[in-house]
Amino acid sequence: MNYPWIDGFLKEMNGVTSDFKEEWNWDRYMIDGKMFAAVCRDDQGKEKLISMKLDPLEGDFLRQQYKDIVPGYYMNKVHWNSVMADGEVPEDLLKDMLEKSYSLIFAKLPKKRQKELLDEKTV
């Protein structure tokens, strides 16, 4: 995988939990149980795709710019996008995409919960 830093990067975000969904072969990353990213593995356990939610217009634009960004694998193709784990998407762009995915889900949490998660970071 060209992006071995992903697990640590995602787990550093406020309130993020993760699990392994065995029947899907996915590492899922969530905020309060709402998934914002997933690392999809092949049958041998090797990372295959990184999926995240994006604004539909931005996702469509990025898919036109990079052959390694495709509509979300087993996800809503309008809102979710997948990056090939062995692809050539620049690290900075992938980090930006993952942060935007996190922000989209974070923004849907109740304001009180958002404040609690932000306060956790300062403690």
Score class of each variant (00 low, 15 high):
113 R>A: 06
85 A>T: 12
44 Q>E: 09
81 N>K: 06
114 Q>F: 09
36 F>G: 08
84 M>D: 12
38 A>F: 05
108 K>Y: 02
50 I>P: 06
120 E>P: 00
51 S>V: 12
44 Q>R: 05
79 H>R: 13
46 K>H: 05
6 I>T: 12
110 P>M: 11
40 C>K: 10
1 M>S: 15
6 I>Q: 06
82 S>K: 11
99 E>K: 12
76 N>Q: 08
108 K>N: 11
117 L>Q: 12
49 L>W: 15
66 Y>L: 10
93 L>M: 08
119 D>R: 09
7 D>E: 14
67 K>N: 07
37 A>N: 04
61 F>G: 08
18 S>P: 00
45 G>N: 05
77 K>M: 08
39 V>K: 06
18 S>V: 00
32 D>F: 10
62 L>T: 10
110 P>K: 15
123 V>A: 02
8 G>M: 02
58 E>I: 10
117 L>K: 12
8 G>L: 06
121 K>G: 00
93 L>W: 01
107 A>G: 10
107 A>C: 03
109 L>S: 09
48 K>S: 14
75 M>R: 06
86 D>M: 09
121 K>P: 01
36 F>I: 08
37 A>Y: 07
52 M>S: 10
10 L>D: 07
95 K>T: 06
32 D>S: 15
6 I>L: 14
69 I>R: 04
72 G>P: 07
69 I>N: 07
20 F>C: 02
102 Y>F: 14
121 K>N: 04
32 D>H: 14
84 M>H: 11
94 L>V: 04
108 K>S: 09
21 K>C: 03
1 M>I: 05
52 M>W: 04
35 M>Q: 08
119 D>Y: 02
52 M>F: 15
87 G>Y: 02
93 L>R: 04
106 F>S: 07
90 P>I: 00
6 I>P: 04
86 D>S: 13
112 K>Y: 01
120 E>C: 07
67 K>P: 00
60 D>S: 15
64 Q>I: 00
64 Q>S: 13
97 M>W: 05
8 G>P: 00
34 K>E: 12
91 E>W: 02
32 D>N: 15
6 I>A: 03
67 K>C: 02
51 S>T: 15
11 K>S: 01
22 E>D: 05
65 Q>S: 14
61 F>S: 15
68 D>R: 08
25 N>V: 03
53 K>S: 13
54 L>C: 03
101 S>Y: 01
28 R>L: 06
69 I>A: 09
45 G>V: 02
5 W>F: 15
77 K>F: 06
65 Q>M: 14
42 D>H: 02
20 F>Q: 01
73 Y>A: 12
25 N>P: 00
